[in-house]
Amino acid sequence: MRTNEEMFNELDRFIEQECNCDEQELIAILHRAQEIFGYLPMVVQAHVARKLGINVSKVYGVVSFYSFFSMEPKGEYVISICMGTACFVRGSDKILERVEQILGIKNGQTTADGKFTITTLRCVGACGLAPVLQINDKTYGNITPEDVESIIAQY
C-alpha cells in the first residue's frame, strides 16, 4: 500500500509536468486522480482545485456531471452488468437481479467486506455475446441467471 503522501505527490507531478496546471486539463487530471486513489473523495477534489487555482465547486461540478467519476470507494472486484439495448432485450435485468440477490446488495453498492461492487454500464460493444457481465477487466458473455453464482464463486 502506498502512503497518502506518495499518491498526492504522483498526482502533483502529473498536474505540473504533463498538464502545466492548466484548468482545461481538468478531466484528464481527474481521470489520473481516480486511477491513483481509486475514487475522488472531497480532499482530492479540494487538492486539485487548489493546484489549478480554481474554485472547488467547479471541480465538484465536473466530478458529479460525469458518470465515470465516483465519489465513493469501490470494492476490490467491480461487477458491471451491461444494460445496453442488446443486452437488455436478452435479459440483462434478470442477471442484475441475480447478482444483487447473491451478494445481498443493490446496484451501486459495495459489500461490507469491500470485496464486490455492483454497477451497470451502457454497451461494452460485445452485443453478439449479449447479455454480458464484466468483473474488473474480464468479460463473460452469453450468460444466464443460473451461471451467475459459479462466476462470482471464482473470485
Binding site: Y66, F68, F69
Partner: peptide
C-alpha cells in the same frame, strides 16, 4: 486525444466542445 468520462450528451457537438475544454458537458 481527449477522454470522455461517461456522459451521453457529450456526443452533441457543443457539449463535446465544452467537455474538451475541461468543463461540464452541457
Amino acid at each position: 486525444i481527449k477522454y470522455g468520462a461517461g456522459a451521453f450528451v457529450c456526443g452533441e457537438e457543443t457539449a463535446l466542445i465544452h467537455s474538451i475544454e475541461g468543463k461540464r458537458g452541457e
